[in-house]
Amino acid sequence: MTSAAANEVAAYLKRRARWSPLEIAFWVFAFATIWLFPGKYLILKDTAILALFALSLDLILGYAGIISLGQAAFFGLAGYFSGLVAKYGIINEPLLALIASGLAAAALGFVTSFLVLRGSDLTRLMVTLGVSLMLGEVANRYSNITGGADGLQGVDIQPILGRFRFDLYGHNGYVYCLIVLFICFVLARRVVYSPFGLSLRAVKGNPLRAAAIGIPVKWRLVAVYTFSAGLAGLAGALLTQTTAFCSLDVFSLDRSADLLLVLIIGGTGYLYGGLIGAVIYKLLQDWIANLTPQYWQFWIGLVLVVIVLAGRERMQGWIAAARGALEDATARVAARPAKFASDRQ
């Protein structure tokens, strides 16, 4: 009995973190888009950046339960940071500049995390929003450096690793974004399945008990907030690098609010929500923008209202059911070649 239970526990814990066939299929398809949709690089690239941005929010909202309307602060800071270092030739190599921008955003995340620790949902909302609005004001104030309302212009991004130039069709730009997204995803996935990630879910579920079993709640939240800020920063830097432009609207409330929508569409707390949400959101945006380009915001609002009234849990239930069905299907497909091979022997 003892050893059976022990085996079961060990097997369960291992299985928990294993890549499922569906996940592998997801990423195979994601990379296949490079060859499947050669004319759509721009929207694909935007989707990848949005997905990374949403992933960063999922870490704090879905896993740690912090409601934030200020994720744009990190996105924007890193966006300007990467634009400025390229413009003034401080860091010419885009990859290095990207990492530096992410670190800058993470540093801001670390500092502001202490502001977010205390207080209710509303206070957190206000403080996160306030921070991003403040940064927007600062960027506006120092328009001689940031270009103010006209945006940061004259950014010249060098080829990645000295070899891959950002071409006109956006091919290299998209591949670059997709690879960064994938690496960040693997990292986030690792974090979520670690003891640290589990402790975050515990803190979200019941902070009182979390402290009572010895979890330093405060430091866990600081850590995840910093990490999330870093990822958001990478997303912002990618946007600047691939468009060679950065404007004040990176700090806007709309950006943070849209991000919430993206994450809600895809569902929180299982990492893929941000990615799937980004894809759906971009498709939706593309479709509606073709119908009524100016009043796109109205439909976004309608989607939000309907989602809430229909019940988020119910929608997540459907998504989970769809996921289960897909998982079964891919498992069957994955099993078939093996069976085929064994039959032939």
């Binding site: 973190a17 399945y193 670690s194 979890i215």
Partner: peptide
């Protein structure tokens, strides 16, 4: 508990 890299159960 602060280990963010190792998967639980290894």
């Amino acid at each position: 508990g602060a280990d963010w890299w190792r998967v639980i159960g290894t």
